Amino acid sequence: MPGRGSVDVQSRFFAAPDGLSLHVRCYEPEGALRLPVLCLPGLTRNEADFEPLARYLSADSDRPRRVYALDSRGRGRSAYDPDWRNYNPAIELADVVAVAAALDLGRAIFVGTSRGGILTMLMAAVKPSMIAGAVLNDIGPVIEPAGLMRIKGYAGRMQRPNDLQHGAAMLRDLFGTQFPNLTESDWLAWATRNWREDRDGLLPRYDQALAETLKDLRPDQPMPDLWPQFEALPQVPLMVVRGMLSDILSADTLRAMQGRRADLQVVEVSDQGHAPLLAEPVIMEQIAEFMQRCDDRASQG
Rank of each mutant, 00 (worst) to 15 (best):
Q292Y: 07
R75M: 03
D295G: 02
I109S: 06
L249R: 01
D71L: 01
I131E: 08
F14W: 04
D186A: 09
I143D: 05
D247C: 06
V9C: 15
A79Y: 02
M158K: 13
A169Y: 01
A54M: 08
A134N: 08
L57Y: 04
M170N: 11
M239N: 04
N86A: 13
R150L: 03
L103V: 01
A102E: 01
G74N: 04
E289G: 00
N46W: 00
A69R: 13
K152L: 08
P29H: 11
P145Q: 06
P52N: 10
P228C: 07
R4E: 14
V96A: 14
A191M: 12
L40D: 03
P141G: 03
A251T: 07
A256F: 01
L214I: 09
D296C: 03
T192W: 12
P237E: 09
R261H: 11
Y68I: 10
G3H: 12
L136G: 04
G116T: 01
G301F: 00
D62E: 15
Q292G: 05
A54S: 15
R65L: 12
Q229I: 02
S185N: 14
V241L: 14
E30L: 13
Q272E: 15
I151E: 08
P29A: 10
Q286M: 06
A146K: 14
S58M: 08
A15H: 08
A169K: 15
D49P: 12
V67E: 00
V269W: 10
S114T: 07
T120E: 05
H166G: 09
P224A: 05
L119S: 09
W190Q: 14
D295T: 02
P180A: 09
A189P: 06
Y154T: 02
V236L: 01
F179E: 00
V282G: 00
Y56G: 11
R25F: 01
L105S: 10
D200E: 12
P161V: 02
L226T: 04
T183M: 09
A54R: 09
R205Y: 00
I151F: 08
Q258D: 11
P2E: 06
L136V: 08
S299G: 11
V236R: 15
V282N: 08
V97S: 04
Q235C: 04
F14V: 02
A132V: 06
N181R: 13
V67A: 09
A101P: 05
A108V: 09
L35Q: 15
G259A: 12
R85V: 06
R65E: 12
G117R: 07
M123L: 15
L70G: 07
T44A: 08
L38R: 14
T120A: 13
P41C: 06
Y27V: 09
L277Q: 07
G133V: 01
C294P: 03
G112C: 10
W190T: 01
D49I: 06
Q265C: 07
Y56I: 02
R12N: 08
G106M: 02
S78E: 04
